[in-house]
Design a protein around this nucleic acid. Structure first.
Lengths: 160, 160
DNA sequence: CGACGATACTTAACATGTAAACTAATCGCA
DNA sequence: TGCGATTAGTTTACATGTTAAGTATCGTCG
């Protein structure tokens, strides 16, 4: 075929220079659309995707964590954490607690309100995942995850 | 197996709730890492990924375009375009030109400097794509693109 | 021809992400 | 002991993306 879907979606006049570039743009575009949908869902509950991510990480860990450690599990660079935590604290979804043994460290504690918000979001989030990606078969989803994981291998290595 | 790669990467203690969620997080994480690498490359040349994207769209079109039309080809919402164009204009990579027939419309024109910057970036960009994704076979890349395109079908339908 | 709605774009206010520079506390080791 | 390097976190400055509201221009219909 002379043109393909993404090319058409982007109204590109020329074909892609390489399958690598096409795949990279597909990742970018799919991510943008997914993020956009979750952004809207989270907004109904007063949080942003990043804020939700932090709450999820805290719940997953099951106990307070230093903010840098949370940052490591996200893609984010350190300074972004400060403001993010500031806003979560303002909503009383987390609490800062200085570590007594090492006074440089500040633990982030998930509050009761934070737990409750997460609980309220569990079903809508799972449902949105299904609504957006449920038309792919289990084996397609598994293959997609496999390919994306393989894609990241090289990227991470180069990261140093 | 009890755990998988992404689960491990995220230091998650519990498995994913669904293959849909796992795939969505894989898209997110892969995108972040890809974007991060391109961010660094573009920065060496004084532009950001969004700015580069605009220049590419202009070159692809081959003639000046209204800024809203450029915005449509990106994921972006309208107001972001103004600042983006402002900064490109400050670097003399594009130029604003008011349309004489319809004075509401402002055409964005790729300048000679813009063309030159794009030309300088062509090789490094292609090379980075290969460096980051070249370890996937052609058929894997094709399958990845196919799955991502299929993933977007539902997302787009659900839009607005 | 003149007001009203639509269209193209801008402005403002805010959340996020990046880099660079800073502060405070701890560690290592002479 | 005590000084320099390291580590945790904050601040600042700026680019980007979002929503809501504003401005200018155009088209149309009464």
């Amino acid at each position: 075929m002379a043109t393909n879907k993404l090319q058409n979606e982007l109204k590109k006049k020329r074909p892609f220079e390489s399958p690598e570039q096409e795949a990279a743009l597909n990742v970018l575009r799919t991510n943008d659309q997914l993020q956009n949908r979750f952004l809207r869902l989270f907004r109904e509950y007063g949080v942003t995707p990043s804020q939700y991510n932090i709450l999820r990480i805290l719940r997953g860990e099951g106990k307070p964590m230093p903010s840098l450690e949370i940052g490591e599990r996200m893609i984010q660079v350190v300074p972004a954490m400060t403001g993010l935590i500031d806003r979560l604290e303002k909503q009383s979804l987390v609490r800062r607690e200085r570590c007594l043994e090492d006074r440089r460290v500040i633990y982030i504690v998930l509050t009761e309100q934070g737990e409750q918000l997460l609980a309220k979001l569990d079903d809508p989030v799972a449902e949105l995942h299904r609504a957006l990606l449920g038309h792919l078969s289990k084996s397609e989803l598994a293959e997609l995850s496999r390919l994306l994981e393989k894609a990241r291998q090289k990227i991470q290595l180069e990261k140093e």
